[in-house]
C-alpha cells in the first residue's frame, strides 16, 4: 500500500513537471497554430539562469524572476526578430524555424554556460516530508502547487482579461481579429513571451529534482509535447491533465512492470491517442467549413 502511494507521488511529481512544460506548447499552439519546438529550451534557460544567478549570490525569488524575464525576453526576440519576419510563414516552415531556434539556444547555452550539469537545493530544503507513510520531497509540493496556481491564473487570464480574449480571437480567426482592432503581431509576441516565461518557471521549479544541463530541454520538451498532445494541443488545461496522466502511467509502469519500459509508455500513449482520439482527450474536434 505504501509502495503504491510512493509510486503515485512519483507520478504526481513527474506529471506536474510534464504538465508545466506542456502548457507552453498549448499556449503557442492556441494563438498561432504553431508547435514551438524551442519550448524545451526555455525550460533549460529557466533552470540555468536561476542556477547561475544563485551562484552569483542573488536571492532565490530575484533569481527566479530574473530567469523568467530572461526567457520571456528571448521568446519575444525570437518571435519578433525571426518568426514574424518570415517571408511566407506557413505553419510547417515556422515549426522548422522553431527547431532551428531550439538548436541555436542549446548551442549558445553549451558555449556560454558549459556542458556539465548543474543543480540547486530545493526551495524548502531537501528533507523528505512523510505523508500517509510515503515520502515526498518538499520540492514536489512546490511544483504541484505552482501547477494549480498557474492553471487558475491562465484560466482567469483567458476568461477575464481583454488580452486573453484577444488571444482567443486571434486563434480562431486572425483576419477578423485584425479587423476588430486587435494588434495581432503584439498578441503573437505576447504569447511567445508568456509561454517562454511558463517554460522558464517549469525549468526553475524542476531543477532541484531533475538537475539542469544545456540539453535537458530535449527530454523535457519531448515529454511536455506528449502531455500537450495527450490533452489536445489547443487546450492548456488538457496539457496539464495530459501531463498528469503521463506521469502516473510512467511511475506505475516503472513501479509494477519494469523501469526499462517507462519511456516507452509515453509514446505508446501518444500513438493510442492519435488512433482513438486524434484531437486529444479534452479538445472538441475542429470542424472546417468547406
Amino acid at each position: 500500500m505504501s509502495d503504491l502511494l510512493q509510486f503515485l507521488f512519483s507520478g504526481l511529481t513527474r506529471g506536474s513537471i510534464y504538465g508545466l512544460v506542456g502548457i507552453g506548447f498549448a499556449l503557442i499552439y492556441r494563438s498561432s497554430h504553431v508547435i514551438n519546438f524551442a519550448q524545451g529550451e526555455f525550460v533549460m534557460i529557466g533552470g540555468m539562469v536561476t542556477v547561475f544567478l544563485l551562484a552569483a549570490g542573488v536571492p532565490l525569488p530575484v533569481a527566479a524572476l530574473g530567469a523568467i524575464l530572461a526567457a520571456a525576453l528571448i521568446g519575444v526576440v525570437a518571435q519578433v526578430a525571426i518568426i514574424s519576419r518570415m517571408r511566407r510563414p506557413s505553419t510547417l516552415s515556422i515549426i522548422i524555424v522553431t527547431v532551428g531556434i531550439s538548436m541555436f539556444l542549446r548551442g549558445a547555452a553549451e558555449a556560454l554556460l558549459g556542458r556539465q550539469f548543474f543543480s540547486m537545493k530545493g526551495f524548502s530544503g531537501d528533507d523528505a516530508l512523510v505523508l500517509l507513510g510515503a515520502k515526498v520531497s518538499p520540492q514536489s509540493i512546490w511544483i504541484f502547487v505552482s501547477l494549480v496556481v498557474t492553471t487558475a491564473a491562465i484560466s482567469l487570464f483567458f476568461r477575464r482579461t481583454i488580452l486573453g480574449k484577444g488571444i482567443q480571437a486571434t486563434s480562431s480567426n486572425r483576419l477578423a481579429a485584425h479587423l476588430v482592432g486587435i494588434d495581432v503581431p503584439a498578441v503573437l509576441a505576447i504569447c511567445f513571451a508568456l509561454s517562454a516565461a511558463l517554460g522558464a518557471l517549469a525549468g526553475l521549479l524542476t531543477t532541484p529534482i531533475t538537475l539542469t544541463q544545456y540539453d535537458v530541454g530535449i527530454t523535457l520538451g519531448m515529454k511536455g509535447f506528449c502531455a500537450a498532445i495527450l490533452g489536445g494541443l489547443a487546450n492548456p488545461f488538457g496539457a496539464i491533465l495530459g501531463g498528469l496522466i503521463l506521469g502516473f502511467a510512467e511511475a506505475l509502469a516503472g513501479g509494477y512492470v519494469s523501469s526499462a519500459y517507462q519511456d516507452a509508455v509515453a509514446f505508446i500513449l501518444i500513438i493510442a491517442m492519435l488512433l482513438v482520439r486524434p484531437n486529444g482527450l479534452f479538445s472538441a474536434p475542429t470542424v472546417d467549413r468547406v
Binding site: R14, G255, S258, S259
Partner: peptide
C-alpha cells in the same frame, strides 16, 4: 535488481521497490 533509463528524471519507484 532495478534499471532506469538515462533520461529518467525520477527513480523513486525503483528505490521504493529496493526498499521494500
Amino acid at each position: 535488481d532495478e534499471t532506469y533509463a538515462p533520461t529518467d528524471t525520477d527513480v523513486t519507484p525503483q528505490l521504493t521497490r529496493i526498499n521494500s
